[in-house]
Amino acid sequence: MIARQLQLPNGQQIPYQLDLRARKTIGLKITDHGLVVHAPKRITATQLQQILLEKSGWIQQKLALRLANQVAPMQWLDGEPLLFMGQDIVLTLIAHPTIKAVTLEGNRLLVRSPHTEQADWVARKVLQWYAQQALPDFKRRVALVAAQMGETVSAVALSNAKSRWGSCNSRKQIRLNWRLIQAPPQVIQYVVCHEMAHLKEMNHSARFYALQASLFPAHAQAEKTLKALSPILHRMT
């Protein structure tokens, strides 16, 4: 990757990372770190500048959208807002000399411990709690969909992927991102059905989408909701 600047006619500069590859066209991608440009190795600086200027409107729009979707990182402090199964809950830290426990009571996630002032410790225990809630919920959903499909699943496991919500392999193993347990139930169900459809169609063909629609008719709205929630769900890290 090569650090570059796109100079706009109004004087504004947009930093980007240039990735030169053996390809014929230019590809633009907005990541968490900004603009990434994939370009042919033999492209000239003038050609690249002209193409990027032509795409500058799209680039600025997408960068502005990314900025608007950014959320504050987790602080792991008392009163921190959290999500669980689509519901707003609040992290509540309670100093206790001996008890070490995380429990959900109403809309409060109570963390009792002599270490409540240690953010790393609180984070670790809260993430463990979310994972403990996620796995049985996901297994139950997978089992119900498998029965509906007349299929068998060899294993259900949690994933910690940064960019994928789930996966299914040829060994009929399903992996689901534990962060999904923060999302509304219909979003979790959508991802489960999406991955389960891959048991019969290991692709994204028309037949796959037809099967997905039969398993979860409201997939389009759920996908839209998940995309909008994604920055919030990824605060949990």
Rank of each mutant, 00 (worst) to 15 (best):
E151H: 08
A147F: 04
T152K: 09
V153E: 08
S167Y: 03
K162I: 10
W165V: 00
G150T: 07
R164C: 10
A157Y: 08
A146Y: 15
Q148H: 11
V153A: 04
T152A: 13
Q148L: 11
A155H: 11
Q148K: 08
G166E: 09
S167L: 06
S154K: 14
F138I: 00
S154R: 14
L135C: 08
M149L: 14
A146E: 15
N160S: 15
A146T: 14
Y130T: 03
D137V: 07
S163Q: 12
A146P: 12
G166N: 02
D137G: 00
K162Q: 15
V145G: 12
M149S: 04
L158G: 10
S159M: 14
S159Q: 05
Q132R: 14
S167P: 08
D137H: 09
A131L: 00
W129C: 02
L135W: 11
V142R: 12
R140D: 13
F138V: 02
Y130S: 06
R140K: 14
G166A: 05
L135I: 13
S163L: 05
E151R: 12
R141F: 07
L127K: 15
A157T: 15
K162P: 01
S154H: 14
M149G: 06
L158T: 11
R141D: 08
L158E: 01
Q128T: 14
N160G: 09
P136I: 09
Q133I: 04
L135T: 08
G166F: 02
A143N: 11
M149K: 00
K162D: 13
A157V: 13
L158D: 10
G150C: 05
S159Y: 08
S163I: 03
K162V: 13
M149E: 08
F138Q: 04
A131P: 00
K139H: 06
Q133W: 03
A155Q: 07
D137I: 05
V142C: 12
V142F: 11
A161T: 01
Y130V: 04
Q133P: 04
L127P: 00
R141H: 13
A161S: 14
W129S: 02
A143H: 10
V153P: 02
L144F: 10
W165D: 02
Q148G: 01
A131F: 00
P136V: 07
G150V: 05
S154G: 08
G150I: 09
S154P: 06
Q133K: 14
L127W: 07
Q128A: 08
A147M: 12
D137N: 04
Q133A: 10
N160Q: 07
A157R: 15
K139Y: 01
